[in-house]
Design a protein around this nucleic acid. Structure first.
Lengths: 115, 115
DNA sequence: CCTTATGTATAAGAATCTTAGGTATTATTT
DNA sequence: AAATAATACCTAAGATTCTTATACATAAGG
């Protein structure tokens, strides 16, 4: 028996906020653990959001007024549902544009013929 | 008269090494200042590599054995030409694959219909 | 003479991530 | 029944990478 240590391809700086915002933009409300699972499924295990990155990021987005929190108890376990605020929705669009720009920029650099 | 402060779209973590390696892969040998200028031109001013990021990155890549250095004096000014080592060339390919994977992964997350 | 361009470098600080712990309940396996 | 895995939250220490600011030096241009 051995343990498969899938080398989690590293997040690029700033990606996480974009991912969180985009997922909340699609799913109305989500809780932290749910986000980690969703990312796993969507990326087929390629990306594992670590809790040490996720929870501080959620707290910060909340503090910045981009997310609202709603507490829930399910099966006697706490859940914190996060939801985009109006500002959060605007920021989501902005972040997605930034990401698209970034990808274009990188393609100019690494694949100049195709751009 | 006012100063146009083009908000330098931020680098995502880890991008810089990939950019450096890819440029050196294409141009045989380059010096630091040349790299900053090349990136400006290729990205039409969208990306400005700061010296505070570039020089430490070059030094680290050299220390890791991915780059070789060659000193030159042009117009009485020092230049440090960097060139890929054999290991550096392999690492370049690996980094470019990583970047391509990363972009695919992000597109699964932010644009799941298209992927 | 002063500023801009060319060319290198480092140090302090911010931001974001990984790793490694911690707590607690429920479900599953042994 | 007991141990482990899954669910669900959290934080702290450390690594890494970037920005900002500064420094030094030569050449060119106004």
């Amino acid at each position: 028996m051995y343990i498969c240590n899938m080398s989690n391809s590293k997040l690029y700086k700033g990606s996480l906020n974009t991912i969180i915002l985009k997922l909340l933009n699609e799913h109305d409300k989500m809780y932290g653990y749910e986000i980690t699972q969703k990312v796993k499924v969507l990326t087929k295990g390629e990306l594992n959001i670590t809790e040490g990155a996720l929870y501080p990021a959620l707290h910060k987005l909340e503090a910045e007024g981009l997310l609202d929190v709603e507490l829930a108890k399910v099966d006697n376990r706490l859940r914190k549902y996060y939801k985009l605020t109006e500002t959060g929705t605007k920021e989501t669009i902005s972040k997605l544009n930034e990401l698209a720009e970034y990808i274009k920029t990188m393609q100019k650099l690494v694949n100049p013929k195709l751009v």
